[in-house]
């Protein structure tokens, strides 16, 4: 299932938290060879994880991490504005209607990578729809563009640095173009499932009718 969790909620699910940061180390340090920090616990974490970002996480049946991405509003500190202006023509994106998406990650333990990717994309699309966002600006493994395109929702690539495995891309997604039908099909879920994921995350269990 898909979880939407702010960083300060991760401690409620230690297994999910630990496996996510370890999978990030595996993906970004070992597989992609990006210049990222891995701490003594084997976690790949950076300064933006300390900004209380919102994580969209695919949780596997055993409770561990199957894949994830990280969102921050561009009205505050973001990786793309701090480190990748040379890939955006010098434009620092700032708007409450534009969120940054980084650290798109997949677990090596997940045996259905394409489906997990599709579910994460679908969960991101739902996030944009429910919170009235216009765009996401992303920093990603440049080779993932092919995967995003196959799902029918490719980012517009603004710039790219490096070659091959460690190539990093910066691109823009337009939420109004998210192909929900296609993402649902690829994710193997019915229409309305993503809305339920989001409601479960953001609707309190004890909600009652307000007194009129």
């Amino acid at each position: 299932m898909i979880r939407y969790l702010y960083a300060d909620q991760l401690d409620e699910t230690p297994k999910l938290r630990d496996s996510m940061f370890r999978d990030r180390a595996w993906q970004f340090r070992q597989r992609l060879n990006w210049q990222v920090n891995v701490d003594a616990r084997g976690f790949e974490r950076d300064q933006y994880d300390d900004e209380n970002p919102l994580y969209v996480i695919h949780q596997l049946a055993d409770g561990s991490h199957g894949g994830s991405m990280r969102f921050l509003p561009t009205t505050g500190p973001t990786m793309v504005n701090d480190h990748f202006l040379d890939l955006t023509n010098g434009v620092a994106f700032k708007s409450p209607l534009i969120w940054e998406c980084t650290r798109f990650c997949q677990s090596p333990r997940s045996d259905a990578a394409a489906r997990v990717s599709a579910r994460l994309m679908l969960a991101a699309a739902e996030l944009g729809r429910q919170f009235s966002l216009d765009h996401a600006v992303g920093v990603f493994d440049a080779r993932m563009v092919r995967v995003y395109r196959a799902m029918g929702w490719a980012p517009e690539l603004l710039g790219q640095q490096g070659e091959g495995a460690d190539a990093i891309g910066v691109g823009l997604w337009e939420f109004s173009r998210a192909p929900f039908h296609r993402l649902n099909a690829r994710a193997g879920v019915r229409d309305g499932t993503a809305g339920r994921w989001l409601r479960q995350a953001f609707q309190s269990a004890g909600q009652v009718e307000l007194i009129a």
Binding site: F202, Q203, A205, G206, Q207
Partner: peptide, 23 residues
């Protein structure tokens, strides 16, 4: 500590103290 817009309907108003506060 959040940054998404929140409709009050999604919040937890169920405890007795909160219901009194609401009244």
């Amino acid at each position: 500590q959040r940054f998404h817009p929140v409709d009050w309907k999604r919040l937890d108003w169920s405890s007795k103290r909160v219901r009194n506060f609401l009244l």
